[in-house]
Simulated scan of single mutants.
Amino acid sequence: MAEQRHEQVDARERRGAPDRERPGRHAVLEEARAWEALVTTARRTVADQLVVGTSGNVSVRVGDTVLVTPSGVPYDRLTPDDVTGVDLTGRQVLGTLRPTSELPMHLAVYRTTDAEAIVHTHAVHATAVSTLVTELPRVHYMAGALGGPVRVAPYAAYGTQELADHMLTALAGRSGCLLRNHGTLTYGTTLDQAYDRTAQLEWMCRLWLTAASVPGLEPSLLTEEQIAEAGERLRGYGQRD
Score class of each variant (00 low, 15 high):
residue 171 L to R: 02
residue 143 A to V: 07
residue 164 A to S: 00
residue 153 A to K: 02
residue 159 G to L: 00
residue 207 L to D: 07
residue 185 L to V: 12
residue 197 R to I: 01
residue 191 L to S: 03
residue 197 R to Y: 03
residue 176 G to Q: 01
residue 167 M to R: 00
residue 188 G to A: 09
residue 167 M to L: 15
residue 138 R to K: 13
residue 208 W to Y: 15
residue 195 Y to L: 13
residue 147 G to Q: 01
residue 121 T to A: 08
residue 124 V to A: 15
residue 194 A to P: 08
residue 146 L to W: 02
residue 196 D to R: 15
residue 128 A to Q: 12
residue 156 A to G: 00
residue 175 S to F: 07
residue 177 C to T: 14
residue 158 Y to N: 13
residue 161 Q to A: 14
residue 210 T to R: 13
residue 148 G to I: 00
residue 154 P to V: 07
residue 118 I to S: 07
residue 110 Y to V: 04
residue 211 A to Q: 14
residue 118 I to V: 14
residue 193 Q to W: 07
residue 183 G to Y: 08
residue 150 V to W: 04
residue 199 A to Y: 13
residue 151 R to W: 05
residue 196 D to I: 04
residue 168 L to N: 00
residue 209 L to V: 09
residue 177 C to S: 12
residue 165 D to P: 01
residue 166 H to W: 01
residue 117 A to I: 06
residue 133 V to M: 15
residue 132 L to T: 06
residue 155 Y to S: 10
residue 123 A to E: 02
residue 153 A to V: 01
residue 152 V to C: 05
residue 190 T to N: 08
residue 205 C to S: 14
residue 145 A to R: 12
residue 157 A to N: 14
residue 141 Y to I: 06
residue 126 A to W: 00
residue 199 A to N: 11
residue 125 H to V: 06
residue 209 L to M: 11
residue 187 Y to M: 08
residue 160 T to I: 01
residue 161 Q to L: 11
residue 173 G to I: 00
residue 193 Q to E: 15
residue 141 Y to M: 09
residue 206 R to W: 11
residue 197 R to M: 03
residue 164 A to V: 02
residue 138 R to I: 06
residue 145 A to G: 12
residue 150 V to P: 06
residue 192 D to Y: 08
residue 207 L to R: 09
residue 178 L to G: 01
residue 118 I to P: 05
residue 137 P to D: 01
residue 163 L to G: 00
residue 129 V to C: 14
residue 204 M to S: 09
residue 155 Y to M: 10
residue 209 L to N: 10
residue 157 A to K: 12
residue 206 R to N: 11
residue 203 W to R: 15
residue 197 R to L: 15
residue 133 V to Q: 14
residue 201 L to C: 02
residue 146 L to Y: 02
residue 154 P to Y: 04
residue 154 P to N: 08
residue 142 M to T: 12
residue 190 T to M: 05
residue 174 R to Q: 03
residue 138 R to N: 10
residue 143 A to W: 06
residue 162 E to C: 00
residue 128 A to V: 14
residue 196 D to T: 11
residue 116 E to S: 15
residue 157 A to P: 03
residue 203 W to L: 09
residue 142 M to E: 13
residue 193 Q to M: 11
residue 135 E to Y: 08
residue 124 V to H: 14
residue 109 V to Y: 05
residue 155 Y to Q: 10
residue 209 L to P: 10
residue 154 P to K: 06
residue 121 T to S: 12
residue 186 T to V: 04
residue 108 A to W: 09
residue 183 G to M: 08
residue 175 S to K: 12
residue 149 P to I: 06
residue 166 H to F: 01
residue 123 A to V: 04
residue 128 A to M: 12
residue 113 T to S: 07
residue 182 H to K: 07
residue 151 R to G: 04
residue 114 D to L: 09
residue 130 S to F: 03
residue 169 T to D: 12
residue 154 P to R: 01
residue 175 S to I: 06
residue 209 L to E: 11
residue 140 H to P: 09
residue 175 S to A: 12
residue 147 G to M: 00
residue 201 L to I: 02
residue 132 L to E: 11
residue 130 S to D: 03
residue 143 A to M: 13
residue 140 H to F: 13
residue 177 C to W: 07
residue 167 M to C: 07
residue 198 T to R: 04
residue 131 T to W: 13
residue 160 T to Q: 02
residue 188 G to N: 11
residue 139 V to W: 10
